[in-house]
Protein backbone atom coordinates (compact mmCIF):
# COMPACT_ATOMS: atom_id res chain seq x y z
CA UNK A 1 0.00 0.00 0.00
CA UNK A 2 1.32 3.45 -0.92
CA UNK A 3 0.66 6.34 1.45
CA UNK A 4 0.52 9.67 -0.32
CA UNK A 5 0.61 12.97 1.54
CA UNK A 6 -2.01 15.12 -0.16
CA UNK A 7 -0.92 18.78 0.20
CA UNK A 8 -4.54 19.64 0.96
CA UNK A 9 -5.69 16.73 3.18
CA UNK A 10 -2.60 15.11 4.67
CA UNK A 11 -1.46 11.50 4.58
CA UNK A 12 -3.96 9.20 2.85
CA UNK A 13 -3.88 5.67 1.45
CA UNK A 14 -3.35 4.89 -2.23
CA UNK A 15 -6.96 3.69 -2.52
CA UNK A 16 -8.17 7.30 -2.50
CA UNK A 17 -6.05 8.35 -5.46
CA UNK A 18 -5.99 7.79 -9.20
CA UNK A 19 -2.88 8.11 -11.32
CA UNK A 20 -2.33 10.71 -14.04
CA UNK A 21 1.12 10.02 -15.50
CA UNK A 22 4.34 12.00 -15.97
CA UNK A 23 4.00 15.49 -14.47
CA UNK A 24 6.90 16.98 -16.41
CA UNK A 25 5.27 16.68 -19.83
CA UNK A 26 4.35 20.17 -21.05
CA UNK A 27 1.75 20.93 -23.68
CA UNK A 28 3.36 22.96 -26.50
CA UNK A 29 2.36 26.62 -26.55
CA UNK A 30 -0.49 27.09 -28.98
CA UNK A 31 0.46 30.52 -30.29
CA UNK A 32 3.79 29.24 -31.62
CA UNK A 33 4.76 27.18 -34.64
CA UNK A 34 4.70 23.53 -33.42
CA UNK A 35 6.53 20.72 -35.18
CA UNK A 36 5.08 17.19 -35.46
CA UNK A 37 7.96 16.01 -33.29
CA UNK A 38 6.96 18.37 -30.47
CA UNK A 39 3.40 17.06 -30.58
CA UNK A 40 4.70 13.49 -30.59
CA UNK A 41 6.78 14.18 -27.53
CA UNK A 42 3.78 15.69 -25.77
CA UNK A 43 1.24 13.01 -26.69
CA UNK A 44 3.23 9.77 -26.98
CA UNK A 45 6.90 9.76 -26.10
CA UNK A 46 7.84 9.22 -22.46
CA UNK A 47 11.09 8.86 -20.55
CA UNK A 48 9.55 6.58 -17.89
CA UNK A 49 12.86 6.07 -16.14
CA UNK A 50 13.88 3.91 -13.22
CA UNK A 51 14.32 6.11 -10.16
CA UNK A 52 12.86 9.47 -9.13
CA UNK A 53 9.76 10.38 -11.14
CA UNK A 54 7.49 13.43 -10.85
CA UNK A 55 3.95 12.36 -11.60
CA UNK A 56 0.35 13.53 -11.36
CA UNK A 57 -2.16 11.94 -9.04
CA UNK A 58 -5.75 12.96 -8.39
CA UNK A 59 -7.16 12.72 -4.87
CA UNK A 60 -10.30 11.28 -6.40
CA UNK A 61 -11.98 9.98 -3.24
CA UNK A 62 -10.87 12.97 -1.18
CA UNK A 63 -10.57 16.63 -2.13
CA UNK A 64 -10.60 15.75 -5.88
CA UNK A 65 -7.57 17.99 -6.46
CA UNK A 66 -4.77 17.05 -8.84
CA UNK A 67 -1.38 16.95 -7.14
CA UNK A 68 2.24 16.33 -8.09
CA UNK A 69 4.11 13.49 -6.42
CA UNK A 70 7.83 12.69 -6.54
CA UNK A 71 8.15 8.92 -6.25
CA UNK A 72 10.87 6.37 -6.91
CA UNK A 73 9.69 3.97 -9.64
CA UNK A 74 11.97 1.20 -8.37
CA UNK A 75 11.36 1.36 -4.62
CA UNK A 76 7.97 3.20 -4.60
CA UNK A 77 9.35 5.56 -1.95
CA UNK A 78 7.61 8.96 -2.01
CA UNK A 79 9.89 11.96 -1.44
CA UNK A 80 7.75 15.01 -2.01
CA UNK A 81 4.25 16.17 -2.93
CA UNK A 82 3.14 19.53 -4.35
CA UNK A 83 -0.10 21.24 -5.27
CA UNK A 84 -0.83 21.14 -8.98
CA UNK A 85 0.05 24.79 -9.51
CA UNK A 86 3.37 24.59 -7.64
CA UNK A 87 6.46 24.38 -9.82
CA UNK A 88 8.81 21.41 -9.53
CA UNK A 89 12.11 22.83 -8.28
Amino acid sequence: MLYIKCPHCGMRSQNEFSYGGDATVKRPELDKEISDQEWDNFVYNRKSLRGKHWELWQHLSGCRQWIKVERDTATHEIFNTLKANEEIS
Binding site: M1, S13, R50, H53, E55, T73, A74, T75, H76
Partner: peptide, 13 residues
Amino acid sequence: DGYNSYAQRGNLP
Protein backbone atom coordinates in the same frame (compact mmCIF):
# COMPACT_ATOMS: atom_id res chain seq x y z
CA ASP B 1 -1.12 -1.56 -10.61
CA GLY B 2 -1.58 1.62 -12.63
CA TYR B 3 1.52 3.73 -12.01
CA ASN B 4 4.99 3.71 -13.56
CA SER B 5 7.07 1.07 -11.83
CA TYR B 6 10.20 -1.02 -12.16
CA ALA B 7 9.59 -2.81 -8.87
CA GLN B 8 8.74 -6.32 -10.20
CA ARG B 9 6.60 -6.75 -7.11
CA GLY B 10 3.01 -5.79 -6.50
CA ASN B 11 0.84 -3.88 -4.14
CA LEU B 12 -2.14 -5.29 -2.27
CA PRO B 13 -4.99 -2.93 -3.31
